[in-house]
Amino acid sequence: MAAPESGDGNNGAARMVTLISSDNTRFEVEAAAASLSQTLQLTILDGGGGGGDGIPLPNVDSATLSKVLEYCIKHAPAAANGGAPNATAVDRAELERFDNEFVNIDQSVLYSLIMAAHNLEIEGLQSLVAKKVADMIKGKSPMEIRRTLGFPDPTPEEQAEMNAHMLEYGWAYE
């Protein structure tokens, strides 16, 4: 799991690593936060990312990486406590509030986040963004879902298929 806050340095400072986005921006972040990514955790455990090296992330642009790291920094202390079984209700409510606000974003940003969470294997973030999209779908008709998710207007063929689906799965439309 993530390193404790005291880090492994003799001076008590937390260990830092550097991540490099696809557009060559460097982000310096605590190893504990970056280690929420299963992908990065292995590299970091191997001693990577320190000093002047940095870990290149060719699939993540700087805007997305900055957002991802905002999530990781917020969640790192709880993750370091092994999912925070001892966290107080206040702490949990605060994280939930943060999460709700965190995904209140434009869809273009949301989809970049989904892909980044997936590529970097950040379990909590993967779950959060999938929940977000699921919540956008709940309670809507297929046409409303299409509009919400930015599908173009259906072609006559697509419209006919939607109608056929409603007939075939009548109970799902009650």
């Binding site: 995904v103 209140n104 956008m136």
Partner: peptide, 19 residues
């Protein structure tokens, strides 16, 4: 659907279906 907030309920500004 606690996460279905105002921004999410709106179609993407550029009308692109990324999902």
């Amino acid at each position: 659907a606690p996460l279905a907030t105002a921004l999410a309920a709106r179609a993407p500004a550029d009308g692109v279906d990324r999902i």
